[in-house]
Simulated scan of single mutants.
Amino acid sequence: MNKPFIPMVLAAVLATGCATGNKQLYDWGQYEQTLFVVYHEPEYKEQALSDYLAFVQTHNGQGTLAPGLYAEAGTFLLEQGDVGGAVDFYKMEYEQWPESRPMLGILIENLEAQQ
């Protein structure tokens, strides 16, 4: 067998092994499609946001909801004027992702002071 051929076969086998079993770490739902619709197809924005909020509210725990999705839902509600709903989603993000606590703690406190 030709010696240069062996490293090529070994590289191919290793690359194939690395490519299998690619499970997603987080559940993103239809996040990308929702953002596209929100920014590029305004006539469908309300339905896309409604579907997104339903997904986040009813997430069934089959995997971890991706970081920032609760906060994004809260921001959508805040833009619609629903401060109470926004605070609820910000609190969910605060509880799920400790890394977000410094920023969200201040945001929640300021929004609750406005109510």
Rank of each mutant, 00 (worst) to 15 (best):
S50H: 12
Y26S: 05
T64P: 00
A54R: 13
V83W: 00
A12C: 12
H59F: 06
K3C: 00
E99M: 06
F36I: 09
A86F: 09
V38I: 13
G61V: 07
W28F: 11
T34V: 15
N2G: 06
L25M: 14
Y90I: 06
A66L: 01
G85H: 00
L49W: 02
D82I: 10
L107K: 08
N60M: 07
Y44R: 15
M1S: 13
D88Q: 12
T75K: 11
A19L: 15
V38D: 05
K91H: 07
G21L: 08
T58P: 01
Y26P: 02
G85S: 03
W28L: 07
Q33K: 14
E32F: 05
Y31H: 13
Q96Y: 03
Y39H: 14
N2D: 11
H59M: 01
L107P: 01
L78I: 05
L78Y: 09
Q57M: 10
G74F: 01
M92F: 07
G105P: 10
V9E: 04
L111Q: 02
A15T: 12
Q57V: 07
D88E: 13
D82P: 08
L14K: 00
A66E: 00
G68D: 02
L111I: 03
V56T: 05
T34P: 02
Y90G: 04
A19S: 15
A12H: 08
T75G: 09
A11F: 11
A54S: 14
M92Y: 09
L65H: 02
E99W: 04
W28D: 03
A71K: 04
F36Q: 14
L78R: 05
Q57K: 15
K45R: 15
L65Q: 02
A48Q: 10
Y31D: 06
E79V: 07
A12Q: 05
L25W: 09
W28H: 08
Y90W: 15
D88K: 10
V9D: 03
G21F: 10
D82L: 10
T16W: 14
T34M: 09
A19R: 11
K3M: 11
L104H: 02
G84D: 15
Y70N: 09
A54L: 11
I6E: 06
L53G: 01
N2I: 06
A11S: 13
P42L: 05
G17N: 09
S50I: 02
F36L: 13
V13R: 03
E43R: 13
D82K: 11
E72R: 10
V87E: 03
V9P: 02
D51L: 08
Q30M: 10
V13C: 12
S100V: 05
A19K: 09
E79A: 13
F55R: 08
N110W: 01
L107T: 08
Y31F: 15
L69V: 07
A15W: 10
A71G: 07
K45C: 06
M8Q: 11
Y52L: 00
E32H: 06
T58K: 13
G74S: 09
N60R: 12
I106C: 01
F36K: 14
F89R: 00
Q114L: 13
K45A: 09
H59A: 01
V9C: 11
L69W: 08
E95V: 12
A19Y: 13
C18E: 07
T34W: 01
P7K: 04
T16G: 15
E109Q: 14
M103E: 15
K3G: 05
Q24N: 14
L104V: 03
G63N: 06
A54T: 14
P7Q: 05
P7S: 06
V87A: 04
A66I: 01
P42V: 07
N110L: 12
A15M: 14
